[in-house]
Design a binder for these strands. Structure first.
Length: 173
DNA sequence: CGGATTTGACCAGCGC
DNA sequence: GCGCTGGTCAAATCCG
C-alpha cells in the first residue's frame, strides 16, 4: 500500500523529495563489523552484519567488504549463509535492484513490528531476504539476505544499487 | 487479465 | 509430548 519505493530511485536525481531526507542506505562499510543480532546462538546461521551509520555507503573498499560467510566447516545441516545489514532508514523497502515478491509476514516476539519475507522473482533464483524493523529504534531496519543472485539486475541500477550488487559478489561464499 | 500482496493456516525445530 | 516461535504456502484480493 505504501509507496516509498519511489523515494529510493531519486537518489541520483537532482533533488531529494525530502520525506526521509537522506535515506542513507546500506553503508556497510566496516569490514570487520561482526554481527550481534540474536542473543542466543541460534545455531547454524552465521550472521554477519554490517553496522551502518548515517552516511552514504561509498567507502566500500573494493578490497574486501568481507561480509564474511561461513567457515567451510561442512558440519551437518545445510548452513546457509545469511547476510544481515542494519540500515538507518525510514522505509522498510530497501530496493537493491532486484525484483522481490513478498511471500509472508510474521510478528516477532521481541519486536512490535512484523517481519516481512521476500523472495527474488527471477526464475531459478531462490534468493530470499527478510526485513525487520527494530522496535527499539524505529529508524533502524535490518535486512537479511539469504542466498546469492546469479543473474543480472533487472532494474536501472542506480548508484547505490550498483554497489549493492557488487557487494553480493564480494560476499560470495 | 496478470502479477504482486495479503493473511491465516500449516509445519518443522527446539525447549521444557 | 506439548506448546511456542519462526518460516512458508496458498487461496483470495488488489491494483495497474
Amino acid at each position: 500500500m505504501e509507496n516509498y519505493k519511489t523515494i529510493f530511485h531519486s537518489s541520483s536525481s537532482t533533488h531529494s523529495p525530502a520525506a526521509g531526507s537522506h535515506l542513507s542506505l546500506l553503508n556497510m562499510v566496516n569490514s570487520h563489523a561482526q554481527a550481534q543480532l540474536h542473543d542466543h546462538n541460534k545455531a547454524n546461521y552465521e550472521y554477519s552484519s554490517v553496522t551502518t551509520s548515517t552516511e552514504i555507503f561509498r567507502s566500500i573498499g573494493p578490497a574486501e567488504t568481507e561480509v564474511r560467510s561461513s567457515k567451510e566447516k561442512g558440519e551437518k545441516k545445510s548452513r546457509k549463509p545469511k547476510y544481515a545489514f542494519q540500515t538507518r532508514s525510514q522505509v522498510d523497502i530497501l530496493d537493491d535492484g532486484y525484483k522481490w515478491r513478498k511471500y509472508g509476514q510474521k510478528a516477532v516476539k521481541n519486536n512490535k513490528f512484523p517481519r516481512s519475507y521476500y523472495r527474488c522473482t527471477y526464475q531459478g533464483c531462490n534468493v530470499k531476504k527478510q526485513i525487520q524493523r527494530l522496535s527499539k529504534d524505529e529508524g533502524i531496519v535490518v535486512t537479511t539476505y539469504e542466498g546469492m543472485h546469479s543473474h543480472p539486475i533487472e532494474k536501472s541500477s542506480d548508484s547505490f544499487e550498483h554497489i549493492l550488487s557488487q557487494m553480493h559478489i564480494y560476499s560470495s561464499v
